[in-house]
């Protein structure tokens, strides 16, 4: 709560989002795609932060809903003409929410390490469903040849074939999602969710139903992850089972922790720093051939370093850097 509104966090968040907004004006295709990818992951990590940072639900299967959202783009796009962004986007959210609701009925009954196990198990089932069957070409993945557009009365307002259109749409979605989540976290529901995280027995004694509160949060996070996956798949117009895989779920957790759990803004910081670090470390001309070839090793070291040095991730470090600017110092995350 305090992290969300900390001036240093807000300032940095604004700066990062403005930087993302500026990319179409100076960057080429490569830079633009990296920036759009950062924003899509930021959305994905927001869904993880809602669960881990505010609900205490350590999910290791969030990519399943991300991947389902991506496949929604494939299923809802006609083969030779542009589909509707609205239909596909809302379809992706609905699919993510529905899958989260159904698995959530079981998942949110568990806690701690069991929660990790059960979310992972469901996600791998989802992965297998697309990997081991002929749905959308199975393990080969499938292409969406014409990306969707938003057309009102014959006028095309947004066309995802344009990288700039897609980029600004994702940016707008990130800003709206951040704003909505801030409102949600401060609402009675958000307070109840955080209460359930701290002490669900106490919440029950007060008259709340922790099970339903967890389930609602899990469903919302599923919808958000679905939307993120849909936008992500729109970058290259390609979907594959890996988008549901545990590697991506793990990456999401790393981004969430790196950015700072329970801060919302941290989702953007985490996504940006991990994607950028990866891009830099893979670039031979920047780091030399040896590191570029074995980029996973320095990346791992840097992650360990950041986690050890900054308690509370990047957002936590920023809030301490800003000191008691907002008059809200003291206390640990």
């Amino acid at each position: 709560m305090r992290l969300i509104s900390h001036p240093a966090v807000l300032l940095t968040l604004t700066a990062v989002l403005l930087a993302c907004a500026s990319v179409p004006f100076w960057g080429g295709t490569y830079e633009l795609k990296v920036a759009t990818r950062i924003l899509c992951f930021a959305l994905f990590v927001l869904s993880i932060d809602l669960l881990i940072g505010f609900g205490g639900m350590v999910t290791f299967g969030q990519a399943a809903f991300f991947g389902l959202g991506a496949y929604a783009l494939f299923f809802l796009s006609p083969e030779y003409e542009a589909g509707s962004i609205l239909v596909a986007g809302l379809g992706a959210m609905a699919l993510g929410a529905l899958a989260a609701l159904l698995t959530g009925l079981v998942v949110v009954r568990t806690k701690g390490v069991y929660f990790i196990m059960v979310t992972l198990a469901f996600a791998q089932m989802g992965f297998a469903l697309f990997h081991d069957t002929d749905i959308a070409n199975g393990s080969d993945g499938a292409f969406v040849f014409v990306k969707p557009a938003l057309t009102v009365a014959g006028v095309t307002l947004i066309d995802f074939e344009s990288r700039t259109d897609l980029h600004f749409t994702v940016l707008a979605v990130v800003v709206i999602a951040l704003a909505k989540l801030v409102v949600l976290i401060r609402s009675p529901f958000g307070e109840a969710l955080q209460g359930v995280k701290t002490d669900d027995r106490r919440m029950r004694a007060l008259g709340y139903n922790p099970y339903l509160i967890r389930l609602a949060a899990f469903t919302m996070a599923g919808a958000l992850a679905g939307l993120a996956g849909f936008l992500f798949a729109s970058i290259d117009g390609y979907v594959s089972p890996e988008l549901l895989g545990w590697q991506l779920s793990g990456q999401g957790i790393v981004m969430a922790v790196l950015g700072g759990l329970g801060s919302l803004g941290g989702a953007v910081f985490g996504a940006a720093s991990l994607v950028l670090l990866e891009e830099v470390l893979k670039d031979q001309s920047l780091v030399g051939g040896f590191i570029a070839e074995h980029w996973h090793i320095p990346l791992g070291l840097i992650i360990v370093g950041i986690v050890l040095a900054f308690r509370g991730g990047i957002a936590g470090a920023l809030s301490r850097l800003g000191g008691t600017l907002g008059g809200m110092g003291g206390g640990r995350p």
Partner: peptide, 9 residues
């Protein structure tokens, strides 16, 4: 029951 989503608590 916590089922209010808009205004600050």
């Amino acid at each position: 029951g916590g089922w209010r989503f808009l205004r600050p608590a």
